[in-house]
Design a protein around this nucleic acid. Structure first.
Lengths: 363, 363
DNA sequence: CTGTTAGCGCTTTCAC
DNA sequence: GTGAAAGCGCTAACAG
């Protein structure tokens, strides 16, 4: 049941192939009578004609396809980014080839080949954090295919767009200090398998913001909390492997260990909402109260946060604006022959979403 | 930077194209000396040769690609199905083209075209529930491309695999009855936009199981609960539109309405875990206790269920086995010229996962 | 073992 | 307006 070809249409109608081609191709250089055009179009519909993409690609035609890599379909922010980007590409007349890399434990290798084979004109890398995969994207970059990275890790020579994690965590820390918290714990992740030299901003920038707020408050960073008076800050950057289908687990384990120590934090700033949920679970299990005993905050403003027993204070990124900006950039790069110069880094400010888990009175 | 072609390799080496082709093609009918083979292979690596997929496709070669449609990347079961299916396809030597339809509000139309253009040899429809999309898959079916549906809606003439929701909900209902629950409420969803004549098994089968358990217990189905003694069953099938990024919302709203009634249920059986979380949130908001005042159960055994303030009793499907079975079927259909006859429906039994939200003592 | 040739479906250029 | 012909990169069938 393969669809009819132009040759078949031509034979069927008793005309030449190029006439058929011209009729089927709206912006053909060659003009023909409306009558024949309609004749061809009608026959095409009847005989179930369908343009053969491989053949067009071989002729050097554009595919109209944009590849979207993302990582972690389960993560709501990742999904939102991809969603908004998809909408934007589609309204610009492109089709998308979405590829969820969380299903490719062996990295992005085959995924890149599939994209290349499909003839993508540009690639949006939306939230790729896997250390191995990011390197494999070079295959696409080397082919001269425009690329933009949106959140996730950076790739040298590729414009990068992300939320201002530094500023957000600084704000969050200041917020908790204002609420009277004194022993603040920051929990982030930094894969042990990451390629050396890679800047893992997700953990590094959060740490910067945390430290900067504490510094302004004149508080020291410690390795473990003490009962001394005054504010103390502490950061744990885990390199435990993450479970694909249980994003809560890692932080729960970390928190369980922390809760066995002599002096506990009274506020825990988690790197994302899933981690916050894991931390909360460990805290509840221990019979402690949130936010009474320990405040917990997240990052990403996923919908779950609103449905927890103690609604989650978190950080909201402007996902839509970020996605749309990245699409604009990518399309500009595709359309202009001379590569437009975009800044290597575009930062979007984020907002605190104050609910109850931080212990704010007004929540 | 397009990769080198075979012609370029041949020119570079001063040999004929077909020699190059034979060297590059392991199972070529033509044998050549190891020396020349190596020579070609080395040159291929040096000049960055990469087979041109469109050209091979045009020669009628197999793509080695399997399309996977899924719906709801945010849903963990959907992701698990896709994950296990991907693994299975890959270990069978196929590459996959994953396409998340939750990003295509306009249906599966363009997605189908992209798949067709890429030359997929088979398509696995994993958990597609969207009413419009399912019809559009006919485009693929009509092309004679093997297809299997895994969970989600059925498609006429396509083998379908799913969990035994009927049996699972019957078990769940019996379990709650055994725990002494008397006013049982079943909450399911059934899109209003569904094409007439479509069997929406997800809600229908759950309802069957629910009714069958109640019938065995001699309990009537009611439209609203009363204070009369004895067991009563009630079912609400909502057709509210679902929010892509907030799967909890719908059931929360339903539950809020229910909680305003005079006589409340003492057990709520939700169609999936997300709904259970939404229901729990409404119940907590109201100041009621789970499971003390109202027991709540879910379906799907997503990881979240373990991290809730009251861990969720739910139903676990054998996702991996189901995914692998569907892969086996699809591959058999692809490999055998004469279509193997598979049963139109393959049912997998599910298991209760008893935690605390149902009020079981042993939990 | 190697080289030549044909042709997959399409677009484009050039003659009629 | 229409037709003929070339060629994208590849494979397969054949001849040398």
């Amino acid at each position: 049941m393969p669809p009819a070809t132009q040759t078949q249409l031509a034979k069927h109608l008793g005309i030449s192939r190029s006439t058929v081609a011209a009729a089927l191709n709206p912006n053909s250089s060659i003009q023909l009578s409306e009558a024949t055009r309609q004749l061809v179009l009608q026959a095409a519909a009847e005989l179930n004609y369908r343009p053969n993409q491989p053949a067009r690609l071989m002729r050097g035609m554009k595919s109209g396809l944009i590849g979207i890599f993302h990582f972690g379909g389960l993560s709501q922010v990742a999904a939102e980014r991809a969603w908004h980007a998809s909408r934007a590409f589609e309204s610009a007349g492109y089709r998308i080839l979405p590829y969820d890399l969380s299903w490719s434990p062996d990295g992005a290798g085959t995924a890149c080949e599939t994209m290349l084979d499909a003839g993508v004109e540009g690639v949006l890398v939306a939230g790729l954090n896997d250390p191995g995969s990011i390197a494999e994207l070079k295959a696409i970059q080397d082919r001269g295919i425009p690329m933009v990275t949106l959140s996730g890790n950076e790739l040298k020579g590729v414009p990068h767009i992300r939320g201002d994690a530094n500023g957000a965590i600084r704000q969050m820390t200041e917020h908790l200090l204002r609420l009277g918290k004194r022993r603040l714990l920051l929990l982030t992740h930094h894969s042990a398998k990451i390629a050396p030299g890679t800047y893992v901003w997700a953990s590094a920038e959060r740490l910067k913001g945390f430290k900067s707020a504490l510094r302004s408050a004149g508080a020291p960073m410690v390795d473990s909390f003490t009962r001394k008076a005054g504010v103390q800050g502490r950061a744990i950057t885990s390199d435990m492997p993450l479970e694909v289908f249980d994003p809560y687990q890692t932080c729960r384990k970390i928190m369980e260990t922390v809760l066995e120590e002599a002096c506990l934090p009274d506020a825990v700033i988690c790197g994302n909402d899933d981690w916050a949920i894991g931390a909360m679970s460990a805290i509840h299990e221990r019979g402690l109260r949130i936010p009474g005993d320990i405040a917990v905050t997240g990052y990403d403003n996923t919908s779950q946060g609103q449905y927890l027993a103690v609604p989650l204070t978190t950080v909201a990124q402007p996902s839509q604006a970020m996605a749309e900006r990245s699409v604009e950039m990518l399309l500009a790069m595709i359309r202009q022959k001379r590569k437009p110069k975009f800044p290597p880094l575009t930062l979007f400010p984020c907002e605190l979403v104050v609910r109850q888990s931080c212990g704010a009175a007004g929540a």
